[in-house]
């Protein structure tokens, strides 16, 4: 079993079983592949250099849309323009955090620097956002329903398996954030 993250003299430490590390690695990889832009970088090298993406569109996949949300509630045009200027680098920074977290999965014992912890917390958060979309978690009642699923012997279908995975990543992120909050106090 994984051990909760803790803040101590060595920084933030945690422990994961090999199977848990494999699971997290595949989750991180899944989200990375969702975030990789469909087409190669913009043909205009100057535009690519400044991160401008004139082809950017609101993502059709709900989970991707949650990772890369519109910046305006009621002005689609403003959202699209913002997306063209910012989405590429947002995708890249998310992918960077997910890759950094995946790289740290080589050992059972996790010892995280402050930067590692930030990468881990956003990577776990993005994984949870994607799983939550797949599980149709729309409100607190849905979240509570999924949360009740705790017994791995009940995992009979994809949905119950996803719910258990979601609960595991929730627990792991919560313990990490508590350790990060403790490090702010120190």
């Amino acid at each position: 079993m994984a051990k909760a993250f803790k803040y101590g003299l060595k920084g933030i430490t945690g422990y994961l079983e090999p199977a848990e590390r494999e699971l997290l690695r595949s989750l991180f990889d899944d989200v990375i592949s969702m975030l990789e832009p469909a087409e190669a970088a913009s043909q205009d090298p100057l535009a690519a250099l400044v991160g401008l993406d004139s082809e950017a569109r609101e993502p059709s996949d709900r989970a991707v849309r949650r990772l890369l949300p519109n910046v305006s509630r009621d002005d689609d045009e403003a959202s699209l323009e913002f997306r063209r200027y910012t989405e590429r680098s947002l995708r890249e920074s998310k992918i960077g955090a997910l890759k950094a977290a995946a790289l740290g999965l080589d050992k059972d014992e996790l010892v995280l620097t402050a930067a590692d912890a930030r990468h881990w917390s956003t990577a776990l958060n993005d994984v949870r956002l994607v799983l939550a979309e797949r599980l149709d978690i729309r409100d607190d009642a849905d979240a509570e329903h999924v949360h009740r699923m705790q017994d791995w012997s009940q995992a009979e279908d994809v949905e119950s398996y996803l719910a258990l995975v979601y609960n595991f990543t929730t627990w792991l992120q919560e313990s990490l954030v508590q350790a990060m909050l403790a490090s702010l106090e120190a």
């Binding site: 990772l67 949300p69 910046v71 509630r73 920074s93 956003t122």
Partner: peptide, 18 residues
């Protein structure tokens, strides 16, 4: 606030500007 919004999206928070 747009700069903050993209940072919040980086953290995975649902942020908009108005």
């Amino acid at each position: 606030v747009e700069q903050h919004a993209v940072a919040m999206h980086g953290f995975g928070l649902w942020a908009t500007v108005e």
